[in-house]
């Protein structure tokens, strides 16, 4: 994993593959329940008008996360 960045730093429309999810406890559980686990492909679909939360697309659905929750997720960018 040479080139991973924090999910918070991703731009709208950028795609990537999740490499690690370091959240624990309830947040960790909720993130994983939604299918955000390592090796999942994601694409940033947008940010709320005040830049937070962020909306991301997984294979078949869209979820939203606050920036401080996105901090626990590292991504290897794959495009754009």
């Amino acid at each position: 994993m040479t080139n991973t960045i924090n999910l918070r730093e991703m731009q709208v429309n950028q795609t990537g593959t999740i490499r690690s999810v370091r959240a624990t406890g309830e947040l960790g559980r909720r993130i994983r329940d939604m299918g955000l686990v390592p090796n999942t492909e994601i694409r940033i679909v947008g940010r709320a008008p005040l830049k937070d939360p962020v909306a991301l697309r997984l294979l078949d659905f869209t979820i939203t996360l606050r920036n401080n929750e996105a901090d626990f997720i590292t991504v290897e960018p794959t495009g754009e």
Binding site: E26, L27, R30, I31, D33, M34, P53, A55, F61, T62, I63, T64, L65, R66, E69
Partner: peptide, 10 residues
């Protein structure tokens, strides 16, 4: 605060 993680359904 409780995590916000939420689905945006189609």
């Amino acid at each position: 605060s409780t995590p916000f993680v939420m689905e945006l359904p189609p």
